[in-house]
Structure formats: C-alpha cells, structure tokens
C-alpha cells in the first residue's frame, strides 16, 4: 500500500518513516507543506496519507480540501497537536478519515494506521 507523509517537522517525518519500515507500506513521497503535498499527490497517487495541520504555505485543512478536489479516494490520517473539537470536526467533514493527536507513541501510530486501512486489504 502506497503512503505519503506530510509534516513540516523533519523529525516527525523521519520518525513515521522509521516506524513504517517494518509494516506493509511503501513510502512513495514525503512533503513539508500542503503545496508540496499536492504536487507529490498528483505524481505518486498514494492510497494513504498522514497529514499535519499547522504547516507553512498551505496548512493541513486547506490541503485536505485541495486533495479531495483532485481525488476523494485517498485515506487521510490527520496527525496534529491541535486537539480542539472544531479542528477535528472540520478535518473529518472535509474528508479526513482518522485523527491522531500529537504527541504519539509508535503503538498509537500503528493502531491508527491499522484502523485506517483495515477494510482496504
């Protein structure tokens, strides 16, 4: 299954990449803001995305909208420190499939991704 990782933090991108090494995901792209993510999405068409919200140039909420306009089949797991209900509801309404709060452990991420793809396998 193809996955793309979007976060403005290099350490978070590296941590997710490291964690996915032993799982059934092929990391096809990483991006550090929404604009990069949109370009990479069009090129690599991942099945799944992890997506931060607070990013420069284009934030995660705008990115969900832009990607859903291109293809609404991708499953987006929002991974964000913004824990208020309004952000969560807004992201889900726009098309996000799951939400994981930062900070997260390896187990938290594995469980969230498993839930995200459980009916795709």
């Amino acid at each position: 299954m193809k996955i793309m990782i979007v976060d403005d933090s290099m350490v978070i991108r590296n941590k997710i990449t490291q964690m996915l090494k032993n799982q059934d995901f092929e990391i096809v792209a990483t991006a550090q803001n929404g604009l990069e993510a949109l370009e990479q999405y069009k090129q690599f068409k991942p099945d799944v995305m992890t997506l931060d919200i607070t990013m420069p140039l284009m934030d995660g909420i705008e990115t969900i909208q832009a990607i859903m306009d291109v293809d609404d089949s991708v499953r987006i797991l929002v991974i964000s420190a913004l824990v208020d209900k309004a952000t969560l509801i807004n992201a889900m309404k726009l098309g996000a499939y799951g939400f994981l709060c930062k900070p997260f452990s390896d187990t938290d991420l594995a469980d969230a991704l498993e839930e995200l793809v459980e009916d795709l396998n």
Partner: peptide, 15 residues
C-alpha cells in the same frame, strides 16, 4: 527541528 516541534505540540495541545 525537534525543539520547534516540542513547542508546537505543547501549544497545540493547549487548545
């Protein structure tokens, strides 16, 4: 990058 991410996480969680 990490020191910024810690600050971002703590600030975001304050919501």
């Amino acid at each position: 990058d990490l020191v910024g991410e810690v600050c971002n996480t703590v600030s975001g969680n304050a919501r």
